[in-house]
Design a protein around this nucleic acid. Structure first.
Lengths: 150, 150
DNA sequence: GCGCCAAACCGAAGGATCTTCGGGTTCTCT
DNA sequence: AGAGAACCCGAAGATCCTTCGGTTTGGCGC
C-alpha cells in the first residue's frame, strides 16, 4: 500500500514542504518524473492533505502558549455542538479536542500577553455550556512539531 | 514592522504553503517580483520558520490522538532535563510542553491503536523521574490547525 | 524456458515558473 | 526643489515542472 520510496518522500516533505521536485527526487534516488508521479498519487489518495508555512509565534506577537481544560454543563445534548461552534469563531483557539476523561474539551491557545488572556477568559466563561475551566500556561516547548512518525 | 501586504502573504501561505509566487502575487494585488522580495525578507527576518507537508494520520496508520499529563518526582534538578531528553528520543510524542499548574508536562501523542498505547505507557512509566500520568484520548478533533491568528 | 502483462522507471522537450536586474514611481525629510 | 529611501514594475535568462514515448523489471501462466 505504501512503498519505502513513498515513506521517504513523505518524511522529507514533512521537514521541507517547499523542496523542488528535482531535489526531492535526487534525495530519494530516482528521476524527477518518477518522483512526481509518486507525489501526484500520494496527494490523490489523500496521504497529503496540504502544505503550510510555519510561522514564528514570537515574531508575530503571539509568544504565549496556553492549554485550557474545559468542563461543560451536561444539561442538554446540544451543548457540545453549540460549544464546538463557538470555538470555531475564535481564531486565538489554535486547537480544540473533545476528550474522554476528567473533563470535556482541551483547548490550545496562542496569545499576545496576560492581559489579552484575561479578556479571553471572560469570553470563554460566557461561551455556551461552560461550567469550569483550568488553565496551564506553557513554560517551555520541549517538542513542538507537526511531523508524524513514519 | 509588518505591513498589511506582509500579513496577507503570511495568511495565504499558512493555508497554501506551496502556492506559486505568481498566484500569491496576484491574490495580494502586486507583481511577482515585488511579492518575492517581500517573501525573501519575511524568511530572512525569521517570520517564516519553514514549510511542511500536512499528512493524513488515519491513512498513515496513526488514527489515535492522545494527551497525557505527566507529573515528575522533584528529587533532583536534573530530572526535568533528563525527562526532556528522553522525550526527544520517542517519535510517537508529537508535542511536549512543560507547563505551570497541577502537573509538569503535557504530551501529545499519535498512536496506531490501543495495544501500542498500552506498550507506550510502560515505556513512559520507565522514563526518568516519572511519578504519575493521566491520559485523555481524543474523541473528536473540533479544530486542529497550525495557523496563527493575524 | 518463454511469452505476456503490469508496474515502475528513465530521459527528452515544450511550457510554465522562478529570480535577478535595471529602471520608474511615490513619499518623506531637509 | 532636491536627495534619498522604499517600493514597485516588466523583461529576460535560468531553472523547474509536467507530459510523453520508450525501456527495464518482476511476476505469472503455459
Amino acid at each position: 500500500m505504501l512503498s519505502e520510496s513513498d515513506k521517504k518522500i513523505l518524511r522529507i516533505l514533512q521537514q521541507e514542504g517547499r523542496i523542488t521536485n528535482h531535489e526531492l527526487a535526487a534525495r530519494c534516488g530516482m528521476s524527477p518524473s518518477a518522483c512526481l508521479e509518486r507525489l501526484r498519487r500520494l496527494r490523490e489518495r489523500g496521504y497529503i492533505l496540504g502544505y503550510a508555512a510555519l510561522l514564528n509565534p514570537e515574531k508575530l506577537g503571539q509568544p504565549l502558549l496556553i492549554f485550557i481544560e474545559v468542563t461543560l454543563d451536561r444539561t442538554t445534548g446540544d451543548v457540545f455542538r453549540e460549544f464546538a461552534e463557538a470555538v470555531r469563531g475564535r481564531p486565538e483557539i489554535v486547537e480544540c479536542h473533545m476528550v474522554a476523561g476528567g473533563f470535556d474539551y482541551l483547548l490550545k491557545l496562542r496569545m499576545p500577553d496576560m492581559t489579552s488572556y484575561r479578556t479571553f477568559l471572560t469570553h470563554l466563561a460566557e461561551m455556551p455550556g461552560v461550567r469550569e475551566t483550568r488553565s496551564y500556561p506553557v513554560i517551555e516547548e520541549v517538542k513542538s512539531g507537526v511531523a508524524l512518525p513514519l
